[in-house]
């Protein structure tokens, strides 16, 4: 696996190194990304890559393949976030690692940066000012999260990684796949490795599928929550944050 994909990555990625040289923080704040810090979801950067292939014909072919899988992907999103991620990221099959990285800055600027909620950076900054480790926990791809971490001033990320063979993406994700309940385990592992007391930690998400992740910390918060998460947050008295759309 290319080392550059693991910048600032946590123990959940098998780099074998912890990139943070800072002493362990008192607590950590774990942020889901799609729908929580940015308005977009996993589909948007994927479409960016598919549209920006070497030739229009190649783009068309890849888009057609995703369209054919559309119903399965949609069904998976409702039932199993991990399967959804695996089906969606299979669209990257055959794209070279060089191309993924070449387009990463543009993909970040075009798709993610523009979609950041107006208050996202403030929230991350305030968490950092409290001395928190700020970890983005996302099903998105690592090379995009790396750029988002830098932009927001966060400290690390836990993200999905494409399997690369002979310099080309195979369309498979490396384990562990960051999705749904797995996020909770990854957060627990991260906190344990960095000496964070989970009771002191914060987690933020917009989706009911992230309830496991929210449930392992002492300070869960719902951000622009979907209906089911809003109901749950209300029942448990969790804070509900309204993030403002990017202007």
């Amino acid at each position: 696996m290319p080392a550059q994909f693991s910048w600032h990555l946590t123990l959940t990625v098998d780099t074998g190194v912890s990139s943070d040289d800072e002493p362990d923080a008192v607590a950590a704040s774990y942020f889901d990304v799609d729908g929580t810090l940015v308005r977009t979801n996993l589909l948007h950067p994927t479409l960016f890559y598919l549209v920006n292939q070497q030739t229009p014909l190649r783009s068309l072919g890849k888009l057609a393949r995703v369209a054919l899988r559309g119903p399965r992907i949609a069904l998976a999103e409702l039932q199993d976030r991990r399967l959804f991620n695996e089906l969606l990221f299979s669209a990257y099959e055959g794209i070279s690692e060089d191309r993924l990285l070449l387009l990463a800055d543009e993909a970040f600027d075009t798709v993610i940066k523009r979609a950041l909620y107006a208050n996202a950076k403030d929230l991350v900054t305030r968490s950092r000012e409290l001395g928190h480790d700020v970890i983005l926990v996302s099903g998105a791809l690592d090379f995009l999260m790396e750029r988002l971490v830098k932009h927001l001033g966060a400290t690390g990320f836990i993200a999905n990684r494409l399997e690369i063979a002979n310099g080309v993406a195979t369309g498979k994700l490396l384990r562990p796949v960051v999705a749904g309940p797995e996020k909770a385990k990854l957060i627990r592992d991260h906190a344990r490795a960095h000496g964070h007391d989970l009771d002191d930690c914060f987690a933020y998400s917009d989706s009911y599928s992230d309830v496991p992740m929210l449930s392992v910390v002492g300070h869960p918060a719902a951000v622009n929550p979907d209906y089911r998460l809003a109901q749950l947050a209300s029942a448990h008295g969790w804070p509900v944050l309204r993030m403002e759309s990017p202007s």
């Binding site: 704040s29 208050n119 305030r126 968490s127 409290l130 918060a221 804070p239 509900v240 944050l241 993030m243």
Partner: peptide
């Protein structure tokens, strides 16, 4: 200094 509550104060 709870960031979640502060965000609710500032934008909610």
């Amino acid at each position: 200094s709870n960031p979640a509550y502060l965000q609710m104060y500032r934008s909610g």
